[in-house]
Amino acid sequence: MGNIMSSSFAPECTELKTKYDDCFNEWYSEKFLKGKSVENECSKEWYAYSTCIDAALVKQGIKPALDEARKEAPFENGASCKVLKKVRTNIDIELGAFIIIK
């Protein structure tokens, strides 16, 4: 769409990111939403960009925190948080105890 693209957290990846974003935006609005494509295209641009990003995540020390978050809220199920469940369990225990006392 020719919009001003955001830059990458790693300046060395910004150019590759712009190329990928351009390709993705076109695919998303013209193909995916219109039901013309069931495949995520732009694989060439994606490979170049993600290789750059993966290296930068390690270099800048973001990777450990990211891995932790990925464990807590996995990508596969759309990142539904586990902490919520933890809170729920506490309430359940309290409720359980309450019922037992009663």
Binding site: M1, I4, M5, S6, D21, F24, N25, N40, S50, L66
Partner: peptide
Amino acid sequence: WNKYPNEVSTHVIAVDVLRRE
């Protein structure tokens, strides 16, 4: 996908895609 940058939310300085499937 193009929400940032915008002139109001200046606290967001970069957005990267890590995985997309």
